[in-house]
Every structure is written in C-alpha cells, then in structure tokens.
C-alpha cells in the first residue's frame, strides 16, 4: 500500500485526512483520540503497532492553541501516519486521554509533553516531570515562556538574559 492508497483507506474511517509531501496526517477530536489510535493499531491492514513519537506545538492566541501529534509506524506495511489533536487554550492545563494503555512507550513521551507544555494526560500511570527538576515552575517550551532570564532555582542565583549579561 503506497501513501495515496493509505490516505484513501484512512479516509473511509476518518473525516479529516491530509496527504502532503508523502506524509499522511489524520486530524481527530480530543475525545476520539483513544478510539482512533486503537483502530490504527488493531486493524489488520493498518497495524500501526509502533509509536515513534508524541510531541506538541503551541500556538498562543489561536484556538485550538495546542496541537498534539502522535507519530505511528507500521513495520509490517512499511507505512507511517501522524495523528493530530487540537486542544483549546481553556481550560488551562489542557486535558486529553492518555495513550499508555495502548502503547507502553507513550509513558515517557507523554511525560515529556506534560513537562514542556503542561498538557495533562488523563489515565497516565505516573505523570511527573521527566526532563526538568521536579520542583520546577512553568512549562518551558510554551511560547510565552522566556528563553532566558529565569531563576536557576538553585541557591537564589539568577540567569540574566543574553542582552543583559555584559558579554
């Protein structure tokens, strides 16, 4: 099954399928996400059994503000597909169902998205920060978080922003 055929096959089940630059993207609603992932994983002619990445982008001022992207791979059929979910700016933090029951590897990937964007995955077994220190405040990859000019959160030191460092 080549990429256009895959897009056609997926269009039977999902209303929004986009094929661009040789990549197939499905857009689903937040409450349909678990169903969609289950369908993609368990249908024999799809069998996307490998979750290679969960990531997120932040678009402040827009609705939906957060776009979650699940990258799936089928080693049997040599195909990839991306599932996108838009999350509104309110409520903050945004909430979505966890994919850990379907893909164990989503555990760390979702923790990373939670750490950097503050998206809460409901049903995640162990939703803690993964990269930043556990007592860190804020979600650094949100666009309204500053690049620098933050407290080091260690013994009261402060990192000045680059233009105020006198280098």
């Amino acid at each position: 099954m080549d990429t256009p055929a895959l897009a056609q096959r997926l269009a039977q089940r999902f209303p929004e399928v986009l094929e661009a630059r040789g990549e197939v993207t499905i857009t689903v609603e937040a409450d349909e996400l678990a169903q969609a992932l289950l369908h993609l994983r368990d249908e024999p002619d799809l069998s996307f059994r490998f979750l290679s990445d969960v990531t997120c982008t932040d678009w402040p001022g827009l609705d939906p503000r957060y776009w979650l992207a699940y990258h799936l791979l089928s080693t049997e059929h040599r195909q990839r597909v991306r599932v996108k979910v838009g999350l509104p700016p309110e409520p903050d933090p945004p909430r979505v169902a966890s994919a850990v029951p379907l893909f164990p590897t989503a555990n760390w990937l979702e923790r990373e998205v939670f750490d950097f964007y503050g998206v809460v995955f409901e049903g995640h077994p162990d939703l803690r920060r993964i990269e930043m220190p556990e007592d860190w405040v804020g979600h650094p990859l949100r666009k309204d978080h500053p690049l620098a000019g933050v407290n080091t959160q260690y013994k009261g030191a402060f990192i000045p922003p680059p233009d105020r460092r006198g280098l």
């Binding site: 920060r129 993964i130 930043m132 220190p133 990859l141 978080h145 690049l147």
Partner: peptide, 11 residues
C-alpha cells in the same frame, strides 16, 4: 533522566 536537558528546541 533529564540531567542533560539542554533546551535545544527553544534555542
């Protein structure tokens, strides 16, 4: 993990 988080994406 996370002891080597460098913030490359943000940069």
């Amino acid at each position: 993990i996370g002891y080597l988080h460098t913030g490359i994406e943000k940069n």
